[in-house]
Design a protein around this nucleic acid. Structure first.
Lengths: 216, 216
DNA sequence: CAGACATTATTGACACTGTCAATATACATG
DNA sequence: CATGTATATTGACAGTGTCAATAATGTCTG
């Protein structure tokens, strides 16, 4: 099946078996520009210069196309968060606030959401995606496991388990980003011009999770 | 579009000038049963036994219909949260953690979301609603102001302002409910059969906000 | 009361969507 | 070359929101 391209891929009418990635790229562009609603089978086909039914050979239906796109986006997000972790100080021996890595993790999540609104929104549009998709679930589970791993390496106070802390941190970030993106009341009071509120919010949450050695 | 569900039961032709409330009631039923996607102008009209263009006299377009419905739902939510506040102990001037009222507030929000998934989801579907609608914005703003009021009555530790605390608490609850409803990874680990995690989560957050009376 | 007006409901149409069926083209392998 | 598989095209259908023209209903005025 895999053949070396006999001629360079010049234009939208992509050669050989290159329609599938072209469709995904077009879908991503449409998503960023006009939101998930604009990512229709026919619009994607038009953007690739093929007939309206051509995508059916690569994606069974619209849900399948959006799911594949979301899996790509989730992988991007996971990479961004992994990079953030790599740039954070290694946690262990140094006691006290080992929350620098968690801060980096949470900040990266929020930053991705605010930087790519439509992409972030799509990730959670369960009505548009196939929640049973293996690729999608796998990336999500790995990301959550990563957070749990970081949290488990932290000495938590008695009565606080890593699972609840992980769910809380993720909920905090996800809720904040969602309401910012949806333009609801939080957004009207939390302009970008101010110092970013989410940083203080995250810091507060993490400080409570692992209070510094000398509480004020 | 796929047509999964059997058609809703045809209803009585609402006489007189009572079509508008009938449309809203039908929309609410459709929403609860099949989600926001199922709330189409034509389906609502069918449910009320009128022609497909009859609703146009009461709602300019689909967005207008859904916005009116969402305003109703937001009022319901506000009422539920107000009731929860009424049942909570009045802010005790005597001492210590006056977070009981905030706990009631947050628990009521989460309870509403988990009890009425489709209604809660619609509240934040900005792509389906008119964010500039006065009724919708008014109810939302009043609810947020109420939370801020409760938080401002609380003696916060230095370095923590009510605004950030309010945004954090709301984000925490909203994020948790969203991910539970969307069936994402949190839901797969946070079954109803266990003790509800959100209670511990909320308690942890509020405890950090106003630490108990015995400081170091 | 009768006529004029405003509100509301109906019918029909258009463009758009997802999806299916039948067809046509290309490619690869025997 | 012939055959067969993968892919692309055309055409159709049901469903949707929304508009225009029409009809029916009520209400108010003179």
């Amino acid at each position: 099946m895999t053949n070396p391209a006999p001629s360079p891929p010049p234009q939208k009418p992509a050669r050989k078996g290159a329609l599938r990635p072209a469709l995904l790229a077009a879908a991503r562009t449409l998503l960023d520009r006009d939101g998930a609603d604009a990512v229709t089978i026919r619009a994607v086909a038009r953007a690739c210069g093929v007939s309206h039914a051509a995508p059916a050979n690569h994606f069974a239906d619209r849900r399948s196309l959006l799911t594949a796109l979301a899996a790509e986006l989730f992988a991007d997000l996971a990479e961004a968060m992994e990079n953030a972790l790599a740039g954070a100080p290694q946690n262990p021996a140094n006691k006290g606030s080992g929350t620098a890595r968690l801060t980096a993790f949470a900040e990266a999540l929020v930053a991705y959401g605010l930087a790519h609104p439509e992409r972030y929104r799509l990730l959670w549009r369960r009505d548009l995606l196939d929640g049973e998709d293996a690729a999608l679930q796998g990336t999500m589970d790995r990301l959550y496991a990563r957070l749990l791993e970081e949290l488990s390496a932290l000495p938590l106070p008695a009565g606080k388990d890593p699972e609840t802390a992980a769910v809380g941190l993720w909920s905090l970030c996800h809720g904040y980003v969602s309401m910012r993106l949806d333009g609801n009341f939080i957004a009207r009071r939390d302009k970008e011009s101010r110092a970013p509120r989410h940083s203080a919010m995250i810091a507060n949450y993490l400080a409570a999770l692992a209070p510094p050695a000398h509480p004020a």
